[in-house]
Design a protein around this nucleic acid. Structure first.
Length: 421
RNA sequence: GCCGAGAUGGCCCAGCCCGGUAAGGCGCGAGCCUGGAAAGCUCGUGGCGGUCUCCGCCUCGGGAGUUCAAAUCUCCCUCUCGGCGCCA
């Protein structure tokens, strides 16, 4: 969440921000009113509490009529406090509802824009391969090689699920290990967390309430299937205070991720948009100073994964209107898919400033005698597996229907060089 | 799932039976002392709000209740640990 003081001091700034992010902004007035009354009543309540506290200390020493009189007096004071408290609880509800639904404030380097058309392509890398045959789409290749079985996935779990078989399953496993090893070399500590998280966790990183319909919810236990490893990994340190010298902290995690994908989407063919997918994620906890420079490093770390696979890609800087709820600045990395003749978003690297730290209570002490402050958190995929696999299949396909395995993955695939031969 | 024990400030722990200003220790910091350090001693060390060197309120897992007053009494819930059961 954002700092309430900013809303109080400069509501116009927040109004503009919400507008730039395509969020409704008329709710702001309701908040300011509720907040004003909340502050007034808090003061009033505190004054009454002070009176009660003071008198409570005296009462044991009083005797007879004086005592009875004071007790009667305090009974009225307590009634009044109760009354104020119940109104405060209402106001708190309004305030919290509002604050939890306000997206992060974009960094000043984020381009203004309405939707994905206003995103900025900041770079394109690698060569787009020239084919001497018509390249196929990933699902055609995968089905003819019998390494992805869509029908069986549907049978087991439903539409939007698939089964990897043989070299397909091996390729998945190879990609996970390749990515984890690379992040390990880059200085990230590998963790493997629960795949199911609680409500505090999804509130902490901002998926709840905003994205709650996009997550699988286990009602009976009020638990949620991991939507992205950013959630469990960031929440590992919920309500913790780091010593200054503990920062920065860098984690990498492989974790299955689940998306309900409620509502209609295009691009449902193949494994581009599925309900369950593997992802290797990077998460950082850093000092607020220079956190946006760290974002550049994080993005570079993700790009290295792509370059290692030899895939052509481009880097997109998202505009205000297209950025996720929690992000202050976000780069997408898109892989080129020659069969589809389009780009696949395989990574999203964000600096979320203190937005999640505030929600999740993640702080650090700048100096031992100073007050604790919120850390900044960052996260980025490195990478999402299905789209990476799709890009590999399409970029590395051969005329005879086989697929040449990228060299970097061969050690992880028992030295195999070609799928389908 | 059943039975039992727990949850107190960054960490540990007392207070709970018997309601009345949350004690002490560790760690960390500042100071004193020292040639320097250790030890020792003194002070500080959660959150929010304000009229911000000061003052107030809140904070004992969460919520509700009783009471003039709740860490303390009552009820409900959550989590942790141990035992039993079930089990990869």
């Amino acid at each position: 969440m954002i700092d309430v003081n900013i809303i109080r001091q400069d509501p116009e700034k927040i109004r503009d921000m919400l507008k730039n992010r395509n969020y409704p902004y008329d709710a702001l007035n309701g908040f300011l009113e509720a907040d004003e009354e909340w502050r007034l009543l808090t003061d009033k309540g505190n004054a009454l509490r002070k009176e009660r506290n003071d008198v409570s200390k005296l009462i044991p020493e009083l005797k007879g009529d004086k005592k009875t009189k004071k007790i009667d007096e305090m009974r009225l004071v307590s009634d009044k406090i109760r009354e104020i408290d119940s109104r405060l609880a209402e106001l708190d509800g309004i305030r919290e509802e509002f604050v939890l639904n306000i997206p992060n404030i974009p960094h000043h380097t984020v381009p203004l824009g309405k939707d994905s058309n206003d995103n900025v392509i900041v770079g394109q890398h690698g060569v787009l391969r020239k084919f001497d045959f018509e390249p196929k789409e990933h699902y055609e290749i995968a089905e003819s090689l019998d390494i992805i079985d869509f029908e069986r996935g549907v049978k087991v779990a439903g539409s939007g699920f698939y089964v990897l078989k043989g070299d397909g399953a091996k390729l998945e496993r190879a990609l996970i290990n390749y990515m984890l090893d690379m992040h390990d070399d880059q200085g990230y500590k590998e963790v493997f967390t629960p795949v199911i998280v609680n409500r505090d966790a999804v509130i902490g990183t901002g998926q709840y309430p905003n994205m709650k319909d996009d997550m699988y919810w286990i009602e009976r236990d009020d638990l949620w299937l991991n939507p992205t490893a950013e959630v469990p990994v960031t929440n590992m340190h919920r309500n913790e205070i780091f010593d200054r010298n503990e920062l920065p902290i860098s984690y990498t995690a492989y974790l299955p991720s689940f998306r309900r994908e409620a509502g209609k989407h295009s691009d449902t063919k193949g494994i581009i948009r599925v309900h369950e997918f593997n992802k290797v994620e990077m998460v950082k906890f850093v000092h607020p100073d220079g956190s946006f420079d760290v974002l550049e490093e994080l993005r570079e770390n993700a790009e290295e994964v792509i370059r290692g696979l030899g895939l052509p890609y481009r880097v997109i800087l998202l505009c205000t209107g297209d950025m996720g709820f929690a992000a202050a600045k976000c780069y997408d990395l898109e892989l080129y898919a020659p069969g589809k003749k389009g780009w696949l978003e395989a990574s999203s690297c964000s600096c979320v400033s203190d937005f999640q730290a505030r929600r999740a209570g993640i702080k650090f002490r700048p100096e031992p005698h100073l007050k604790s402050e919120f850390v900044h958190t960052l996260n980025g995929s490195g990478l999402a597996l299905p789209r990476t696999m799709a890009a590999i299949l399409e970029n590395c396909q051969n005329k005879d229907g086989t697929v040449t395995i990228p060299e970097a993955l061969r050690p992880y695939m028992r030295g195999r060089e070609i799928i389908g031969r």
